[in-house]
Write a protein that binds this DNA or RNA. Structure first.
Length: 249
DNA sequence: GTCGGAATAT
DNA sequence: CATATTCCGA
């Protein structure tokens, strides 16, 4: 028992994810109606453009004065998967590993408020199709505009390849990349729900990843991520519904 | 009952 | 076509 131990201990303490310390990396993504229902006032600073999943612009119902509806009962507008959101998604999947890349986990990792398991599940489904298409018939012909969203985010490359495994290595690479960007102090797990994270990651399969616990959602934000960029203002007038989308069709 | 995933619906 | 919702098997 030397300093090593105490050091280790100290580190453990530091790594402990305290909710208060690293709470909300996502404060937006609350649809107007919800915000109203909760009486939440959104204070947005120009330099604080957080990851916000944009919903389809819903025609404000002047008659919806009774915003006393329960949040869970409310019907959320269509979620629009902006490239940023998708990137978060991909990063989550990449870092979690195929094995743990299931809707719930992904959702938690992304830590985007308002995002539901169903949202992720649906997107994941499509994403898998995309991966398959890309793998199987790479030359078959896959370049329609459809893939643009997915193309916007690089695919970790080893997503569906079975035989050779390079999980740890890849993971490290990813970490290096992110850390290298700005030497951010990687905040520990952001899961407020320690129960889940602890339980899950504690009994994870043979420690494919041992250091996952130090990285989490804040990564994208804390990094030099210039997310604060693309202003989504392209209006796609589809049928009778006007939605806010990023890319033109 | 929950969850993941494919099928189906909008 | 993109996303949501439903259905069904673990």
């Amino acid at each position: 028992m030397r300093e090593d131990d105490s050091d280790w201990f100290t580190r453990c303490e530091e790594d402990l994810p305290f909710p208060e310390d690293l709470i909300p990396l996502s404060q937006s993504l609350i649809p107007p109606h919800l915000a109203l229902a909760f009486d939440i006032h959104h204070q947005s600073t120009p330099s604080q453009a957080n990851s916000s999943a944009e919903f389809a612009a819903d025609s404000a119902d002047p008659l919806s004065s009774g915003a006393t509806e329960s949040a869970r009962t409310l019907k959320r507008p269509r979620l629009v998967w902006t490239p940023q959101l998708h990137k978060r998604f991909v990063d989550a999947v990449a870092n979690l590993g195929i094995k743990n890349a299931v809707p719930k986990t992904i959702m938690q990792f992304m830590s985007v408020e308002g995002l539901t398991r169903e949202n992720v599940a649906s997107h994941l489904q499509k994403y898998r199709v995309y991966l398959k298409r890309m793998q199987g018939g790479g030359g078959g012909g896959s370049d329609p505009v459809t893939d643009r969203l997915f193309a916007s985010s690089p695919v970790p490359a080893h997503f569906l390849l079975p035989p050779s495994f390079v999980p740890v290595a890849t993971l490290q690479q990813q970490q290096q990349q992110m850390v290298a960007v700005g030497n951010v102090q990687l905040q520990p797990t952001q899961f407020h729900q320690r129960q889940i994270s602890a339980a899950r990651f504690g009994s994870l399969t043979n420690g494919q990843f041992s250091s996952l616990q130090r990285m989490s959602a804040p990564l994208l934000q804390s990094s030099v991520s210039n997310y604060v960029d693309e202003l989504e203002s392209a209006k796609a007038n589809n049928g009778g519904r006007t939605v806010l989308t990023l890319f033109p069709t």
